[in-house]
């Protein structure tokens, strides 16, 4: 994972709450077995409407999505994060995120920046009044800045540290391989295994 410290890019106002993962990428796009090329599926139903925000310039070149509350609800598909990143998004701003989406983002280096809803409204107005306005997201300072508006965002400290360092979870866990082996050795033998039982 690439380390992330700050990012500056065009902000895209998406005035919708409950943007579920079936909207971010419908199930028919989940059949690929590779990790790339999911940008076609991003918001594919909405993108058929030519007035949809990502079909209008300069928003189509955006990399910071500003969405309504409860972004990423629904399925656990990490494809939602891949689709956003493959399209070019590096940050999603919202006042509330679904837990699994937030976790998936943190594994891929997509910053899910939690901003209070009144501040989201200010960002929406700014981005709509002046299309193409750039937003700077500073992960060290935990701030979002656009023109002369600077607002704070929340992200848990551990995720922030991992993103800043670009660290991979499996590598971190393997530093505790001895603890895992010790725990495993003490598990009761009655616990189930998946091998087909002798009939």
């Amino acid at each position: 994972m690439e380390p992330f410290s700050t990012h500056t890019g065009i902000g895209v106002p998406l005035r919708r709450s409950n943007v579920d993962t079936d909207q971010i990428i419908p199930a028919v796009y989940l059949k690929r077995v590779t990790r790339t090329g999911f940008e076609d599926g991003l918001f594919s139903a909405w993108r058929q409407d030519e007035t949809f925000i990502l079909n209008t310039d300069p928003y189509s070149r955006g990399s910071v999505l500003v969405a309504g509350p409860d972004f990423g609800t629904g399925s656990s598909r990490e494809h939602a994060v891949w689709a956003l990143m493959d399209y070019g998004f590096r940050v999603v701003i919202a006042s509330r995120f679904a837990d699994i989406f937030r976790g998936n983002s943190s594994k891929q280096g997509l910053v899910a920046a939690q901003v209070a809803q009144p501040d989201v409204e200010l960002l929406w107005k700014l981005l709509e009044n002046e299309p193409g306005t750039e937003i700077t997201v500073d992960l060290t300072e935990k701030t979002v800045q656009a023109k002369d508006l600077t607002v704070p965002f929340e992200i848990d400290d551990y995720t922030r540290w991992r993103l800043l360092e670009g660290l991979d979870d499996i590598g971190l866990t393997l530093r505790h391989a001895d603890d895992v082996a010790a725990f495993e050795a003490a598990r009761p033998s009655r616990l189930p295994t998946t091998a087909a039982p002798a009939s």
């Binding site: 656990s76 499996i170 866990t173």
Partner: peptide, 20 residues
């Protein structure tokens, strides 16, 4: 609970998950 694909890989590799 449900997990994403990165976590699937993590569990396959380590049989554990880091969780708050």
């Amino acid at each position: 609970f449900g997990i994403g694909t990165s976590e699937v890989e993590h569990v396959l590799a380590t049989q554990t998950l880091p969780l708050k």
